[in-house]
Structures are given as C-alpha cells and as structure tokens.
C-alpha cells in the first residue's frame, strides 16, 4: 500500500498547475466573468493540445493512456482556478465524439436537471429536449433547465466533479488564510484571533478529509466510495467558500473579490449530481 501521489502524479499535477497559471491567470478569469456565455476556444484547444481531454484515452487511440487517479488530479487543478466550460462532459466524450479529445469540439451533456454551456457547445450528448435557459447565478456557467425525468450521471462524471470541488475547497482555504494573514484590525492580523483562526482550520479539515475520500474513490472506482467522495467534496467546496466570504469580511461581499465565484460554482457543481438526500440514502443503503 502506498496511498500517496507517485512522482509521476506529482509531476502531472505540477505541470497542469503551471499550464493553467500561464493560460488562465486572474486577468483571464476576470475577462471570462465580464463576458458571460463566451467560451475561449483558443484556451479550449490549448487544453486539448496539453492532453487535458485525451488523458484517459488509450495511447493507441491518440490518448495519454492514464487512469482515473490522474484525471482526478487534473480536474482538481481545474477546480482550483475556476476553469470554465463543460470540462467533464468533453473529457468523457473524448473516445466517442470526434474532435473532443483534441479540444476542437466542445461537448456538453445533461447533468441532473441542469444543462451547462448549451449555446457555446458543438455537441450535446444525451436528451436535451425542452431545455429552457435560466439566469445562472454563476457568471462562469451558463445554464439551461431540463424537464424530467433526469438520467443519473455516470460515476466518472460524479467523481471528476467532486475533484473540481476538492480543488475549489483547497483554494478557498488558501485564499482565506492569505487574507487573514494580511488584513489587520485591532493592531494585528485578523488571523491571530482564534475566532478567525478556527474558521480557517475547519476549512483545512474539510478539504483534507474530502481529499482522502476523492483520491480513494479514484483508485477503487467503487460506487459507495464515489458517493462518499461526492458528499464530502460538495460539502467542503460549499462550506469553505462560505467561510472564505466570511473571513474576507466586507471585501468578501464584493463582486471584485473572487470568493463569490468559488461559492457560486460550488453550488452549480453540487447541483449537477445527485441531491444530498439521494447521496445519503445511497450511502445508508450500502450499510
């Protein structure tokens, strides 16, 4: 047993982090926020060139030939930086929709009662009849609402979404810690006050427990482990983003700070899978 990242996995994670820092920095993020509904196709092709979508395709089919644990690490990085677009659907379509693997075509798919990025996508996989646009709370994710009944998402889609939630939960913890160390009130950094300190510690605890669950689910691909990962990662992303807003105080309530983008995306991602009730029932049924 060696439940730690291998050297290759660490290198992959670092490589993706560097790539995203270069191709999707904060300016790009804010540009995306200011142009809702617009998907940066040049970025999408760059992701394709880097193997983002072909990661799990066999090498014989032009893919990178890696597994679910590697995909999870890559999607965690995407979640960290709030990378926009139907990433999970395009990744999972890489073997079936021509052009998806290379980033030439953008693929979306229904996720529960939501259909993200319909208008900016080239292909909709699955039944999208009756889709009605809604005024998405997340400026980085245009949404349509789908009439029922709703097909369940694949376990891979659920897990990769959980990985994005994990990345976001880790990032909001970092943002809160940074702000708490810089912002001074009463003559000292607010992070010196236990009331603030404990919020930050709880954020780390949530993120790290979710990490153990998400990584283990990636290794085992067991449905019950995936359900546990989904539950804990959704909770970590949403609650960490809320606490991050709180730590930022008045600044956290502004459009200018990036914190609200994490919270809104965490809500959207949590809404694409099973409801909390369904996940908890599945976990109870497995006892």
């Amino acid at each position: 047993m060696r439940f730690q990242l291998t050297d290759d996995q660490r290198a992959l994670r670092d490589g993706v982090r560097d790539l995203l820092a270069g191709r999707f920095d904060r300016d790009a993020l804010r540009t995306a926020v200011d142009t809702p509904g617009h998907l940066d196709r040049a970025l999408w092709r760059a992701l394709g060139d880097a193997g983002f979508f072909a990661l799990c395709l066999p090498e014989a089919d032009g893919g990178v030939g890696l597994g679910l644990p590697e995909a999870v690490l890559v999607f965690e990085e995407a979640g960290r930086v709030l990378l926009p677009g139907p990433l999970v659907a395009t990744h999972l379509a890489a073997g079936t929709v021509p052009g998806a693997a290379t980033g030439e075509r953008v693929v979306t798919a229904p996720a529960g009662e939501l259909l993200p990025w319909r208008d900016a996508s080239d292909v909709v996989q699955g039944d999208a009849t009756g889709a009605v646009p809604l005024a998405s709370v997340d400026p980085l994710t245009p949404l349509h609402r789908l009439p029922g009944p709703h097909a369940p998402r694949s376990p891979e889609a659920v897990l990769l979404t959980a990985a994005e939630q994990l990345g976001s939960a880790t990032r909001t913890c970092e943002l809160a810690v940074r702000y708490a160390g810089e912002r001074e009130q009463f003559g000292q950094p607010i992070g010196a006050f236990q009331a603030v300190k404990h919020l930050c510690a709880q954020m780390l605890v949530r993120a790290e427990l979710a990490r153990a669950a998400v990584y283990a689910a990636a290794v085992t691909a067991d449905p019950v482990e995936i359900a546990a990962a989904e539950l804990l990662a959704d909770e970590a992303a949403v609650r960490n983003a809320r606490d991050c807003v709180q730590v930022h105080g008045g600044m956290g309530f502004t459009w200018e700070a990036d914190v609200h983008l994490h919270l809104k995306r965490a809500w959207v991602r949590a809404g694409t899978g099973r409801t909390t009730r369904e996940t908890e029932e599945a976990l109870a049924a497995a006892l």
Partner: peptide
C-alpha cells in the same frame, strides 16, 4: 448514511 461517508473517509 453520512456517517458511512465520514468513517470511510
């Protein structure tokens, strides 16, 4: 069900 997730993790 939630405790199942918790203790597995």
């Amino acid at each position: 069900g939630r405790l199942n997730a918790e203790f597995r993790a």
